[in-house]
């Protein structure tokens, strides 16, 4: 842009901005659309796919992944990553069983609080190391992935906790429904709405986006980056802890392997959901949609008569398609900004 004719150039950038906004809206819509398409296709092949029971199973199956994805999205938006969530889930799930073995009459809400708090403490370990010692999150959470899982193994020492060791009411929560909606899915919905609300409407939430968009600029703007990132990891840990309790309620049988390898699935859900892996953009709604989409694919493949061994491959292809699509969209927006600017 030059000094001589700023006005037309600015009108042009306004047009580019509209296009950019539309692209952002399209992103979450795109996942929803893909989801609808998948469900419709599968239902055409087999109408039972849309039965109440199957829908319930789908929601139930998505719940834990969605909760983890919401937490992960909060972290990824700040340009970090939390690889330890699978281990936190495992530890929290085993702790749930162990606590019930020790205190059989413990009220269920208290158990939820204990699990979430345990997760928050573990998340604080991550966040503390990352924020205070200023070391990369990928390395720290890869380290705590091993550490937390190791602690889990040492605690479990090969034991298994069975459904019989836990209160029936607790296990009932794993399958109960309210108006046909699984109780566990309600937990996920509550988490999603709460976190989404904070990210959109609170200064601290907006600051997470700022940190992920440009960490250096965030520091210069006086944003308490260290504290915000710390709390992002605490949130991610707390949600993984909550997911651990729900995992225990849903599956009933617990050993030290709960949630093993989940971290990559969760990152996949977040990426498919349109959260930029280098931070600054995306939403928890997209991440949750991504989790539902991944779960639905796994459920739909057998119905569509596709060898279930294709599951992982389909998920992988979806991740590549999602990030490829994001890139293509942003490249188009950038090109249109450039060309409009040139041809005034």
């Amino acid at each position: 842009m030059t000094a001589v004719d700023t006005a037309p150039a600015e009108t042009a950038t306004g047009g580019g901005a509209r296009l950019a906004r539309r692209a952002f809206a399209v992103r979450e819509l795109g996942i929803a659309l893909a989801l609808v398409l998948l469900v419709v296709t599968t239902t055409v092949v087999n109408p039972r796919f849309l039965s109440a029971q199957n829908l319930k199973d789908l929601l139930l199956g998505s719940t834990i992944l969605a909760i983890l994805a919401v937490g992960q999205a909060v972290v990824v938006i700040t340009r970090n990553v939390d690889l330890s969530i699978g281990s936190i889930l495992g530890l929290s799930a085993f702790a749930t069983g162990a606590v019930f073995v020790a205190v059989p009459g413990l009220p269920i809400p208290l158990m939820l609080v204990i699990g979430t708090a345990l997760g928050a403490v573990l998340g604080a370990v991550n966040g503390g190391l990352i924020a205070a010692a200023r070391v990369p999150a990928l390395v720290v959470t890869l380290g705590t992935l091993y550490m937390f899982r190791g602690v889990d193994y040492m605690w479990a020492t090969g034991r298994q906790i069975n459904a019989a060791d836990m209160p029936a009411a607790f296990l009932g929560m794993g399958t109960a429904t309210v108006l046909g909606v699984p109780v566990l899915a309600l937990f996920a919905a509550a988490v999603l709405v709460a976190v989404g609300y904070v990210l959109r409407n609170h200064r601290s939430g907006r600051e997470l986006y700022a940190i992920g968009s440009d960490p250096a600029a965030a520091r210069l703007s006086g944003i308490p980056s260290g504290r915000r990132v710390f709390y992002a990891f605490v949130t991610s840990g707390a949600l993984a802890g909550l997911a651990g309790v729900l995992h225990a309620a849903r599956f009933g049988t617990l050993d030290a392997n709960a949630g093993l390898g989940t971290e990559l699935n969760v990152v996949a859900a977040v990426v498919v959901g349109g959260v930029a892996i280098f931070g600054g953009s995306g939403s928890v709604y997209g991440a949750a949609l991504g989790a539902v989409l991944l779960t639905t694919i796994r459920a739909a493949l057998p119905v569509l008569g596709i060898n279930p061994f294709w599951q992982d491959a389909a998920v992988g292809a979806l991740i590549l398609a999602a990030i490829g699509l994001d890139r293509a969209l942003s490249a188009r927006v950038a090109r249109s900004l450039r060309e409009r600017k040139a041809h005034v």
Binding site: Y209, S213, A217, A218, S221, A276, G280
Partner: peptide
């Protein structure tokens, strides 16, 4: 106001 603008590109 710094020499290099410090804006958040995504916001």
């Amino acid at each position: 106001i710094y020499q290099e603008p410090t804006l958040f590109a995504d916001l």
